[in-house]
């Protein structure tokens, strides 16, 4: 619960700071939405028959600002999160959202063909669908009787 300005016209910057500290501690204690090792963005991975999907929560990053690289069994998501304002004179009462440049490489359970990559962003969630190279697809071998 935020009590920004609760005291009306009286502003106590230290109370705000103390509160932020407690909130930060709480943020790290309970599950904040970032990966286990703190890297950003947090991802989920989905496996299909001949393809893999990586979804990433990256609110505030426009589709054009996402830089994707796919190589062998590695996908790298990079980009930049802009601050909510560039105005130096604006007072920032709370800063919890991660900002700045980010880059994260994710190892995939299979090698993927860079020509078979499709990525789309919706409501701040990026979905990258990557297909296995044709020559590496498992082939079904018919067992003949006799």
């Amino acid at each position: 619960m935020l009590n920004y300005g609760q005291s009306g016209s009286q502003w106590d910057p230290f109370a705000e700071l103390r509160q932020l500290q407690t909130q930060m501690n709480r943020m790290f204690d309970t599950g904040s939405r970032s990966s286990r090792d703190g890297s950003w963005p947090p991802v989920n991975m989905w496996l299909g028959d001949d393809s893999v999907v990586v979804t990433a929560e990256m609110p505030g990053v426009a589709q054009d600002d996402i830089d994707l690289t796919v190589r062998d069994n590695m996908v790298t998501i990079a980009g930049k999160r802009n601050p909510p304002t560039d105005d130096e004179t604006a007072a920032r009462h709370r800063r919890e959202r991660p900002l700045g440049e980010f880059s994260r490489s994710i190892r995939l359970p299979l090698r993927v063909d860079p020509d078979k990559v499709e990525a789309r962003a919706r409501n701040g969630v990026l979905e990258i669908e990557m297909g296995r190279p044709d020559e590496e697809r498992p082939r079904k071998i018919k067992v003949k009787s006799n």
């Binding site: 970032s34 991802v43 989920n44 496996l47 299909g48 929560e57 409501n123």
Partner: peptide
């Protein structure tokens, strides 16, 4: 509201 990709099963999750 993020539906699971169709025909896939989740193998790893951070969120």
């Amino acid at each position: 509201d993020t539906p699971a990709p169709e025909g896939y099963r989740r193998v790893y999750a951070e969120y």
